[in-house]
Design a protein around this nucleic acid. Structure first.
Lengths: 207, 207
DNA sequence: TCTTAAAAACCGACCGAGCGGTTTGTTAAT
DNA sequence: ATTAACAAACCGCTCGGTCGGTTTTTAAGA
């Protein structure tokens, strides 16, 4: 028997919740928000619908909880990447390459795009998501301002530079849905690096 | 009676199709793709469901037809704007302001965002939309290359510069869903203008 | 330690609503 | 008379949400 006998209630809850949140993100990635159903999530999680409704009574609860966790994971990942840059383990070029790869191939961007678009016409969902986004954005700014200094802050501040990059990445990732052109995106990425190098440079390890 | 008697069949069809396509875009704007239904479109159009199914048998037909028309309208609007720039009726600053206003407050961006996101998980829809996007993009490039020249083409070509701007606008518009901050977007827009002015300048009227 | 009642986790059937699509019938143009 | 435009009822299906019942864990008392 591979069965784990007598798990505590907390363990059972945590396991089920984990399966459900992972399945929610997977469903958003695979079929999008419009085609994501509570039944589909439960099926992907390998959990009964009863268990799902017990832990997350409504669809909204699932989406919001999954989003909150996903955002936290992404903020952590970016901070780790920026820490590598500050410590000199990677250079500016490697930082942008990794960040873009994370946006394009990670779960975060397209999952959040799905729920952001869904939130546009859903007052309640928007109310739940707005604070999560604000929090994520604040974390980004902290990470970025610790990692970069502007060369000419009066023209383009470090904060504005960060948002420019984020917005270019966002736009590129949206475009990538209907335009799978590796060369085009490489060209764009190089241009972003070239343009940004003028306005911002990574902090040098002062040790 | 305000009734128009004895309209020709073509007139009746054109009118009904127009009402339906307009209603489709309105529905996408108001409730998003996920909550857009054929019945809702017919209701918005003030047309019976029978008439709707007669002209556009499936939901896909409505979406694709409305998208095609919307893209064409947007391409025309941009070309008109660029023509104003080339003719000296507006300056570079006015061009970017109008373009951004069009993205943020026009129907085009958010409607197309809805269907692009929906297309990500829908093979058939993607197949219908991809050529429309390619066509729109080609028109953009023509308009842009007639209106701008790169100052240092070997670093950032005019084409790349255009795509950078488009992608920044895309990203900003996505962000605007959950972040209604006029000052922030003004700041970003000024930065885009400043950064781009280095790499590109409008063609001067040669007359 | 053993018993047992309560609580929590879990299960699956059920429901009304809304969906996209089909079909049958009616009105208007040709 | 023929055809296109329009109308509305209908169908099978899936959705999110609800609910009564079962199993597992927990905790209190003998």
């Amino acid at each position: 028997m591979t069965m784990t006998r007598r798990r505590t209630q907390d363990e059972r809850s945590a396991e089920t919740r984990r399966l459900l949140l992972d399945a929610t993100v997977r469903s958003l990635m695979e079929v999008g928000y419009a085609n994501t159903s509570t039944a589909g999530i439960a099926r992907r999680a390998g959990v009964s619908r009863g268990a799902q409704t017990h832990h997350y009574p409504g669809k909204m609860d699932l989406i919001v909880a999954a989003t909150a966790e996903m955002f936290a994971n992404f903020a952590d990942g970016m901070e780790r990447l920026a820490a590598d840059l500050r410590a000199g383990r990677i250079d500016l070029d490697g930082f942008f390459e990794a960040a873009w790869d994370n946006v394009l191939h990670g779960d975060w961007f397209y999952s959040s795009l799905e729920i952001i678009v869904a939130a546009r016409g859903d007052e309640e969902l928007r109310g739940h998501l707005a604070p999560l986004i604000l929090d994520l954005h604040a974390k980004f700014e902290t990470t970025w301002s610790r990692s970069f200094v502007a060369t000419a802050p009066e023209v383009v501040s470090a904060r504005v530079a960060m948002n420019l990059v984020m917005n270019v990445f966002r736009g590129m990732a949206v475009q990538a849905v209907l335009r799978r052109d590796e060369r085009y995106f490489r060209e764009m990425l190089e241009a972003v690096k070239a343009v940004l190098a003028v306005h911002v440079r990574p902090v040098t390890p002062d040790a």
